[in-house]
Amino acid sequence: MKKILLAGSTGYLGVYIAKELIRQSYFFKAIVRTSEKLEQNDIKANELLKAKLTDSESIKGCCKGIDIVISTVGITKQKDDYTYMDVDYQANMNLLKEAKKSGVKKFIYVSVLNGQKLRNLKICDAKELFVEQLKHSGIDYCIIRPNGFFSDISEFFNMAKKGKIYLFGNGEIKANPIHGADLAVVCVDAIDSIDKEIEIGGPEILTQNEIASMAFDVLGSKKNITYIPNWIRIIVLKLLKLFTNSKIYGPVEFFMTVMTIDMIAPKYGKHSLKEYFKKLKNIT
């Protein structure tokens, strides 16, 4: 049985990958800053390394005896003083260096759909810089490119709870976001896959109008959508770039950009967005 190193195991996707590795009876080692999130989800790794991937010294030798590295490492909501280049690029580079040193056979990295076309966004630029380095590393690799998580779409539900959803343009932009559990299966199956890049989405292609209506329906609320012209989005982004730091601007820039383009990928999985919204309703 191949031995797996999972980096980013305490993030949204990482938790699901850890559970899938356990379900498929893989030996896996998790790199964590703190084990609290794993304990909360009743996840027991075969080995645990408490370290910071941004600190190359703290992960020395982490890949010894490892066959496959799976990395979901990246910033979703910026904390501390780290930038996208610090985490999405350099932290993964630190891990890649250790993988090469220890003779790891394959490196699986989770990037984003259309990352190559969105290099003007700081988060995508950092991810794609690492992708370039990985492709030229000499290690077998697989780049997983999801088009968005259900957790990202929860913002629609949160707006609906407040009584109004704001959409850019006419709300007809389409996407098929994927549940973390479904994406985790794709990531673990990539261990034995010959594919170098996998674009992946969920089983339902929906417009933003349909997602908004679904959120209101689940809540039993009257549909209330406000459409924002694209020129306002552009002005807001310019102002944010001038008057806020990257911690605020980066995530907003990404969200407000992908909200204006179709993010459709090959359909996969069994989890529906409506069921996800129902679970959110029960939690709250």
Rank of each mutant, 00 (worst) to 15 (best):
K64C: 07
G201W: 10
D88I: 01
T244I: 11
G269K: 04
V73D: 00
C63E: 01
I228C: 07
L237A: 09
S111F: 02
N176V: 12
I165D: 01
E98D: 08
G220V: 11
F107C: 08
I17G: 02
F216R: 08
L240Q: 07
L273H: 03
N94F: 03
S221R: 14
S137R: 14
A99V: 06
L129V: 02
G65H: 09
G8V: 05
E20Y: 06
V236I: 15
N282Y: 14
E39H: 07
H271W: 11
N170M: 10
I205F: 12
E39R: 09
S9M: 06
S246P: 04
L237C: 10
I211A: 05
L118T: 03
M214S: 09
V258S: 04
L134Q: 03
E172T: 15
K196H: 14
I143R: 06
K77T: 13
N92W: 02
I205D: 04
A18V: 03
R23M: 06
K60T: 11
A175E: 03
D88W: 02
K44C: 01
E132N: 13
F107G: 07
S213R: 14
L219I: 12
G250N: 11
D42A: 15
V218K: 10
D67C: 13
G148Q: 03
L48C: 11
T10M: 02
I264P: 04
G61A: 11
R145P: 00
C187G: 05
N245H: 10
K97R: 14
S25I: 07
I248V: 15
K127D: 01
R23H: 12
I4K: 06
I264W: 09
H271G: 00
L53R: 02
I17E: 01
G171E: 12
E172H: 13
K19G: 02
